[in-house]
Write a protein that binds this DNA or RNA. Structure first.
Length: 196
DNA sequence: TCTTCGATTGTCT
DNA sequence: GACAATCGAAGAA
């Protein structure tokens, strides 16, 4: 079942927690690639000094200002694409960065794109998973609640609170406190025991 | 195993 | 003109 819009209209932290264990699905060229979401980060509003919306609305971040459930995909470090899903109501800029997934379908497709890198390193980073699933700026703004965009999220496995670990966000050393230390990174350790 | 550092370009000041 | 929500190779230990 594809996750419905309501799921994404909650605050970014709730969406980030809720996405753990859900299935990220990419359909391209009649192939389906999918994996369980293992790691996310919440970016919450213009007041969050680590959020791209901290300086207001721009051409780059405008998708974040729309309603939740759409893909916000941006380019950084001159070579990497990042996948986020927009959270919250329309008008409030918030998003959840997908940092890591466990691939369970379309392994041949990923292997082709990521060789000779070992399997455990295929999708364990935000730029790695976009490369593995062929996610680029062309998908910026697609509706994650619709299968027609080629990128969407479905119900997956249940993750209990005991399986969730929270830490400070990664790669935002430029941000001042308290934002730098907010524990808005959500990680789960279900690498084994999950079958597609 | 750990740390350092180069790659490479869109976006904003 | 500065720098970024990163990766992975190379070198040190």
């Amino acid at each position: 079942m594809v996750l419905e819009r309501d799921f994404y209209l909650l605050p970014a932290q709730a969406v980030a927690r809720g996405l753990l264990g859900k299935k990220l699905i990419r359909q391209i060229n009649n192939q389906t690639i999918c994996g369980y979401i293992l790691e996310t980060e919440a970016y919450d509003g213009e007041r969050d000094e680590a959020c791209h919306a901290r300086n207001g609305k721009t051409e780059r971040n405008k998708v974040m200002y729309g309603p939740g459930g759409y893909a916000y995909i941006y380019f950084t470090y001159g070579m990497h694409w990042m996948l986020n899903c927009v959270a919250g109501e329309s008008g409030y800029p918030a998003a959840v960065l997908i940092r890591s997934i466990k691939p369970v379908m379309g392994l041949d497709y990923i292997r082709e794109r990521r060789h000779p890198i070992p399997q455990e390193h295929w999708t364990n980073g935000p730029a790695k998973l976009t490369k593995a699933l062929d996610i680029t700026g062309e998908l910026n703004g697609v509706d994650l609640c619709s299968k027609s965009g080629g990128l969407f999220i479905e119900e997956g496995v249940t993750i209990t609170d005991g399986q969730v670990h929270t830490t400070a966000r990664i790669g935002i050393q430029y941000a001042p406190e308290p934002w730098k230390s907010k524990k808005w990174r959500f990680v789960t350790e279900i690498m084994s025991g999950v079958e597609g």
